[in-house]
Write a protein that binds this DNA or RNA. Sequence first.
DNA 1: CATGAATGAGTTTTCATTCAT
DNA 2: AATGAATGAAAACTCATTCAT
Lengths: 201, 201, 201, 201
Amino acid sequence: MEYDVREPKQQRAILKKESIIDAGFKCICEVGYHNTNTAEIAKEANVSTGIIYQYFKDKHDILIAGLEKYGEDIFFPIIRIEKVDLKKDFENTMKSMIKEYINNHKISKVAHEEITAMVHSDSDVAEYFYKKELESTDRVTKYLLNNGFKDNNLQEKVHISMGLIDNLCHEVIYHKHKKMDYDKMTDLVVDLIIGLFKNDI
Amino acid sequence: MEYDVREPKQQRAILKKESIIDAGFKCICEVGYHNTNTAEIAKEANVSTGIIYQYFKDKHDILIAGLEKYGEDIFFPIIRIEKVDLKKDFENTMKSMIKEYINNHKISKVAHEEITAMVHSDSDVAEYFYKKELESTDRVTKYLLNNGFKDNNLQEKVHISMGLIDNLCHEVIYHKHKKMDYDKMTDLVVDLIIGLFKNDI
Amino acid sequence: MEYDVREPKQQRAILKKESIIDAGFKCICEVGYHNTNTAEIAKEANVSTGIIYQYFKDKHDILIAGLEKYGEDIFFPIIRIEKVDLKKDFENTMKSMIKEYINNHKISKVAHEEITAMVHSDSDVAEYFYKKELESTDRVTKYLLNNGFKDNNLQEKVHISMGLIDNLCHEVIYHKHKKMDYDKMTDLVVDLIIGLFKNDI
Amino acid sequence: MEYDVREPKQQRAILKKESIIDAGFKCICEVGYHNTNTAEIAKEANVSTGIIYQYFKDKHDILIAGLEKYGEDIFFPIIRIEKVDLKKDFENTMKSMIKEYINNHKISKVAHEEITAMVHSDSDVAEYFYKKELESTDRVTKYLLNNGFKDNNLQEKVHISMGLIDNLCHEVIYHKHKKMDYDKMTDLVVDLIIGLFKNDI
DNA sequence: CATGAATGAGTTTTCATTCAT
DNA sequence: AATGAATGAAAACTCATTCAT
C-alpha cells in the first residue's frame, strides 16, 4: 500500500510555478520567445496548459519571471564583484575575470542571443536590462571606492571598462574577424582599462 | 506550384517594388518584424497583398531588401570614412564624428532597436551585420594605413575604438545613468582612442 | 513549433473527433475534396477550425480517417462475402448480390464519384484502394476455395468477375446507353461468370 | 535588315491558341489540373498570362479543348476500329488489340490517371467521357454488324467486352496483384469474349 | 487546484482573372 | 492583339487564452 504523501499545498504550488518558469525560460533560451508556445512549455514542465494561467498572467509573464530568476547569473555576473580580491595584482585579476566572462558567455551563448534580441523589442525585458546595467555599474563603482579608488569620474570609467570587456567577450565568442589576434586584443583592452584607472588607485 | 519571384521590367513596377521595400522596412523598423504583417505592408505601400509575393519570396525577403537598401546609412555610416579629412586635428575630428554618430542613432533609434534585435534571432540579418561589420573595420583600417598610420595591431585597435564609440553613442542616447557626465565620458573615450593610436601616427 | 496531433481521452472529445471525421467525409463526398474547406468541415461538425488541427494533421488526414471508417461499406462490401450462402443456387445468389451492389452504389453515388476520383491524384487514397482491392480478391478467392472451388486460376477468375460486376453496376447506375437492355446485360454477365467457374465447382 | 514577315493574323492566332491548348493539356496531364496554374501554362506556351483569356473563357476551358483535341487518341482508340481487319483470326486479332491497348495506356499512364480522376469531379469532363464511350460502343457495334455479326444483344456484348479489356489493361499496367498470372488472365479474358460472340459470327 | 478540450481571430500565401499600357 | 502587372478573395493552419468538467 502506498501512503498518500501530502505535501503542503503552498509548497507544491511553489514547485509547480518554479517548474513552469524553468521550462519556459529553457524553451525561450533554446529556440526563442516567438518559437516557443505554451503547449510546449506545459509539456516541458509536466503540467497542463490551463494551469499556466493560474500562475502567470500570460506567456510574457513567464519570460520575465525566468529573467528575474536567472538573468543576473547569465547577463550580470559582475554584480557579484565583491567576491573579487582587488588586493592582488590588478592586471592579472582583470585577465582572469575576462576569461571567466568569456566562458560564461560561451556556456549560455544561445540564451544571450535570444534574450538580448528581446531587449530591443520588449519593453519589460528592456527595463530589466536597463535596471540591471545601472545596478552593475553602481555596485562596481562602489566596490572600487571601498577599495581605495579615487572618485575621479569613476562611474564613467567603470561603464567604459565594462563596455570594453563586453565587446571583447562578444568578439571572441562570435569570432567574426578571422584575421584578428584575440590575445593581442585582450592585452590592448586590459592596458586601456589599467590606463583609465592608473591615477585613481 | 509556385509562381517565380519576378523581376519587374516596367518603370511603374520597379517603383512599386521599391515602395514595397520602403513600406516593409518602415513598418518593421517602427513596430518590429513580428508585429508587422503583409497586409500592413501592402496597405502602407498602397498595393495589394498579392503583388508582394510576385516580387518577394516572403516577408523575410522584404526585410533583407530593406536592409540592403538602407542598412549602411543607418548602421554603418563609418563605411564612408574616406570622406573624413584626417589631416586635421585628430581629436576634434573624432569628437565631431562621435556627435554625428549620436545624431544618426537618435534619428533612427527605433530602427536600431528593432533591427539589431534580429541579429540574434535571424541568421540572414546576422550575416548581413557580420559582413558589414567586417567591411567597416577593414575599410577604416585601410584608410588609416593610407593616411600614414603604422600597422601595429591596427585592426584590433580599430575594432576596439569602434566598439568604444558604439557603446558611448548607445549610452548617450538611452541616457540610462542619471548621474553620468556624458561630456566627460566622451572626453575619456576620445582620450582612450588617441592613446591607442598615439605611437602609430 | 507544431502542436502534436492529439488523441482525445475524454468521451466528449472522442465524439467530437468522430463528428469531424463524419462531417469531413460527408463534405468531401458531397462536393469533392478540393471544394471542401476546413471552415466548412468545422461548421458541419459544429466545432471550431482550431480543434480540427488538434486531432488531424491536415485536411487530407480527415479524408483518410473517413475512408478508413466508411470505405469498406461503400466501396468493398464484397469483403464480407462470408455471409453469402453459396450452398444455394449459384446463379440466383449472384443475381441478388449484383442487385444489392447496384443499390449500394446508387445510395452513395456521389461518394463513389468523388472518392474514386482521388485514387488517381492522391497516393494515400490510391494505396487504400489497392490494399482493399487486394484484400477483396483474396477473401473471395479463399472463400470459394473453402466452399469447394478448385484452384484453377481462381484468383484471376475472381478478379475478372469482380471487374465484370463493377462495370455492370456502373453502367446500370449511370445509364449511359439509352438503348441498352440491362436485364439482358445482367444475364450475360452472370452467364459469363458462371461459365468462368463451371469446371471448378 | 530584317523583313517583317507578316503571317496572316488569323493564322497566327490559331497557332497561338493551339500552343495554349497543348501547353495546358501537357501540364494538366503531367501534374494534374489543380496543380497547374495559368502562369505555368502561359510560360509553357510562350505567351503572356493575359492573352489566355482572349482565347479561353477560363482555365477549365483549356482542359476541355485539350480533351477534345487529344482525348480520342488517348482514351478511345477503339473508336478507329474500322482499321482492324476482322477477316483474320478473331483470337489473334483481339490479343494484338489488347497488347496495343496496354501499350497505349502505358505511354500515357499519368494522363490517364489525371484525367480520369476528373471524370468524377468535373461535369464537363464527365460529359465528354460519357459521349465518347457511347460513341465507341456504337461504332464498334456497327462495325461488327457490317462485318457479319448477328445482332443478338450485340451492343450489350460489345460493352461488356470493352469493359473486360479496359479492366485487364488497367490491372496489367498498375500490376497491383503480385501473385496474379497476367498471361493466363489475358487468355481468360480473350476466351470469355470469344465465348460471348461465338454464336453471332 | 487541475486538466486538456475548445475557441477563433489572426497570419501567410496562392492564383484565377482583370486591367492599364 | 498582346503584355505582364495588379488584384483580392479565399485557403490552410497556428496558438494564446478561456472554459467545461
